[in-house]
Amino acid sequence: MDSVLHAPGRFGPRTLLITTAAVALTGWAIHAVALHKRLAATRRDPLTGLLRRDAYTTRARRLLACHEDTAVVMVTGDPLKLMRLFGITAQTAMRYVAAAYPERTARLPR
Protein backbone atom coordinates (compact mmCIF):
# COMPACT_ATOMS: atom_id res chain seq x y z
CA MET A 1 0.00 0.00 0.00
CA ASP A 2 1.28 3.41 -0.97
CA SER A 3 1.37 5.98 1.82
CA VAL A 4 1.40 9.00 -0.53
CA LEU A 5 -1.91 10.11 -1.88
CA HIS A 6 -1.91 11.03 -5.53
CA ALA A 7 -4.96 13.17 -5.96
CA PRO A 8 -5.48 14.72 -9.35
CA GLY A 9 -5.01 18.50 -9.06
CA ARG A 10 -5.21 21.54 -11.25
CA PHE A 11 -1.45 21.93 -11.58
CA GLY A 12 0.86 19.18 -12.63
CA PRO A 13 4.60 18.90 -12.00
CA ARG A 14 5.41 20.40 -15.40
CA THR A 15 3.39 23.54 -14.61
CA LEU A 16 5.16 24.00 -11.28
CA LEU A 17 8.55 23.55 -12.93
CA ILE A 18 7.75 26.16 -15.60
CA THR A 19 6.42 28.59 -12.98
CA THR A 20 9.55 28.20 -10.85
CA ALA A 21 11.81 28.82 -13.86
CA ALA A 22 9.74 31.82 -14.97
CA VAL A 23 9.99 33.47 -11.55
CA ALA A 24 13.76 33.00 -11.47
CA LEU A 25 14.21 34.29 -15.03
CA THR A 26 12.02 37.32 -14.34
CA GLY A 27 14.11 38.24 -11.31
CA TRP A 28 17.31 37.82 -13.32
CA ALA A 29 15.95 39.99 -16.15
CA ILE A 30 14.92 42.78 -13.75
CA HIS A 31 18.37 42.67 -12.12
CA ALA A 32 20.10 42.77 -15.53
CA VAL A 33 18.09 45.79 -16.66
CA ALA A 34 18.80 47.66 -13.41
CA LEU A 35 22.52 46.87 -13.67
CA HIS A 36 22.60 47.96 -17.32
CA LYS A 37 21.01 51.31 -16.41
CA ARG A 38 23.55 51.88 -13.64
CA LEU A 39 26.46 51.04 -15.93
CA ALA A 40 25.11 53.27 -18.69
CA ALA A 41 24.75 56.12 -16.17
CA THR A 42 28.44 55.90 -15.27
CA ARG A 43 29.38 56.61 -18.89
CA ARG A 44 27.52 59.94 -18.88
CA ASP A 45 28.04 63.19 -17.03
CA PRO A 46 25.24 63.56 -14.46
CA LEU A 47 24.97 67.33 -14.99
CA THR A 48 24.86 67.54 -18.79
CA GLY A 49 23.99 64.00 -19.81
CA LEU A 50 26.83 63.97 -22.35
CA LEU A 51 29.32 61.15 -22.69
CA ARG A 52 32.33 61.30 -20.42
CA ARG A 53 35.82 61.49 -21.90
CA ASP A 54 36.65 57.76 -21.90
CA ALA A 55 33.29 56.76 -23.37
CA TYR A 56 33.51 59.59 -25.92
CA THR A 57 37.01 58.67 -27.10
CA THR A 58 36.08 54.99 -27.32
CA ARG A 59 33.05 55.81 -29.45
CA ALA A 60 35.00 58.31 -31.56
CA ARG A 61 37.77 55.78 -32.28
CA ARG A 62 35.19 53.17 -33.24
CA LEU A 63 33.48 55.62 -35.62
CA LEU A 64 36.77 56.69 -37.17
CA ALA A 65 37.81 53.08 -37.68
CA CYS A 66 34.54 52.20 -39.44
CA HIS A 67 34.00 55.37 -41.46
CA GLU A 68 36.91 57.11 -43.13
CA ASP A 69 34.92 60.22 -44.07
CA THR A 70 33.86 60.99 -40.47
CA ALA A 71 35.15 63.95 -38.50
CA VAL A 72 35.08 63.95 -34.71
CA VAL A 73 34.96 67.25 -32.84
CA MET A 74 35.83 67.58 -29.18
CA VAL A 75 34.58 70.78 -27.58
CA THR A 76 35.79 71.92 -24.19
CA GLY A 77 34.62 74.67 -21.91
CA ASP A 78 38.04 75.00 -20.32
CA PRO A 79 40.15 77.61 -22.16
CA LEU A 80 43.25 76.56 -20.26
CA LYS A 81 42.99 73.07 -21.70
CA LEU A 82 43.91 74.46 -25.11
CA MET A 83 47.07 75.93 -23.64
CA ARG A 84 47.94 72.73 -21.77
CA LEU A 85 47.33 70.46 -24.77
CA PHE A 86 49.14 72.49 -27.40
CA GLY A 87 51.54 74.55 -25.29
CA ILE A 88 50.33 77.90 -26.57
CA THR A 89 50.08 81.18 -24.71
CA ALA A 90 46.87 82.89 -23.63
CA GLN A 91 47.37 85.60 -26.26
CA THR A 92 47.64 83.04 -29.03
CA ALA A 93 44.56 81.23 -27.71
CA MET A 94 42.61 84.51 -27.80
CA ARG A 95 43.75 85.09 -31.38
CA TYR A 96 42.42 81.67 -32.35
CA VAL A 97 39.09 82.46 -30.69
CA ALA A 98 38.92 85.89 -32.35
CA ALA A 99 39.68 84.38 -35.75
CA ALA A 100 37.04 81.70 -35.30
CA TYR A 101 34.32 84.11 -34.12
CA PRO A 102 35.01 87.57 -35.59
CA GLU A 103 31.44 88.79 -35.14
CA ARG A 104 31.46 87.97 -31.43
CA THR A 105 34.92 89.32 -30.69
CA ALA A 106 34.79 92.56 -32.71
CA ARG A 107 34.94 94.71 -29.55
CA LEU A 108 37.92 92.89 -28.05
CA PRO A 109 41.35 94.51 -28.41
CA ARG A 110 43.54 92.70 -30.88
Rank of each mutant, 00 (worst) to 15 (best):
M1R: 02
L5N: 06
A7F: 08
A7V: 05
P8S: 08
R10T: 06
G12W: 05
R14D: 15
T19D: 07
T20V: 07
A21E: 12
A22Q: 08
A22G: 02
V23H: 03
T26H: 04
G27N: 08
G27P: 04
A29S: 12
H31A: 14
V33L: 15
K37V: 08
L39S: 05
L39P: 04
T42F: 02
D45T: 02
P46I: 05
P46E: 10
P46K: 04
L50P: 01
R52H: 03
A55W: 00
A55N: 03
T58R: 15
R59A: 15
R59F: 00
R59D: 15
L63K: 05
L64N: 12
A65W: 02
C66M: 12
E68T: 07
M74I: 08
V75I: 11
G77P: 06
G77F: 01
D78E: 09
L80R: 07
K81M: 06
L82P: 04
R84S: 12
L85A: 12
L85V: 12
G87T: 03
G87M: 07
I88M: 13
T89E: 14
A90K: 05
Y96R: 15
A98L: 02
R104S: 13
T105I: 00
T105W: 01
R107D: 07
P109Q: 12
